[in-house]
């Protein structure tokens, strides 16, 4: 078909309208996904001698368990890898109150729907003597920050 001025303008207008609409929708929907999520990734939890020995201590502010024994300190996430409930601890390990996933004391999944093992975080010491838990760095379950 021969391109007339009318059909050309019509096509052009349609393309512009589509492009503008797509851009508007994209701009609108983009609002829904915030760019930065303000979460502290490195946290201070206090001096190592404030934690009881051979025990998992729950830090509710950061949702982590700190384990201390005579050699050193470890830190593990207290959030169930299944659907994000807070884990409870007993002699056998961690237990999720929401859907019954259970982990051993090394954070490996024993039963239930949890898809992954728990994350262990790197522990270090700040100049003021407080322990620093770096939640951006994961370590092996047996890696300890030696305090002796």
């Amino acid at each position: 078909m021969k391109e007339t001025r009318r059909s050309f303008i019509r096509k052009g207008a349609a393309i512009f309208a589509l492009a503008a609409g797509a851009l508007a929708v994209f701009t609108l929907l983009r609002q829904l996904v915030p760019r930065m999520i303000g979460q502290k990734k490195r946290v201070k939890v206090g001096k190592s001698n404030t934690f009881p020995v051979d025990t998992f201590t729950y830090i509710d502010e950061h949702k982590i368990y700190i384990y201390r024994d005579h050699e050193g300190v470890k830190a593990v996430s207290a959030i169930c890898t299944h659907l994000g409930c807070i884990l409870e601890i007993d002699e056998d390990g961690f237990l999720c109150p929401c859907h019954g996933s259970s982990y051993n004391r090394s954070g490996e999944v024993l039963s239930g729907p949890a898809p992954r093992a728990l994350s262990w975080y790197q522990v270090s010491k700040a100049p003021d003597g407080q322990l620093v838990i770096d939640m951006t760095r994961q370590v092996k379950p047996d890696a300890k920050f030696l305090t002796t």
Partner: peptide, 9 residues
């Protein structure tokens, strides 16, 4: 309370 889950939730 974000620090403790209801049991059962």
């Amino acid at each position: 309370n974000p620090a403790f889950a209801e049991n059962p939730a």
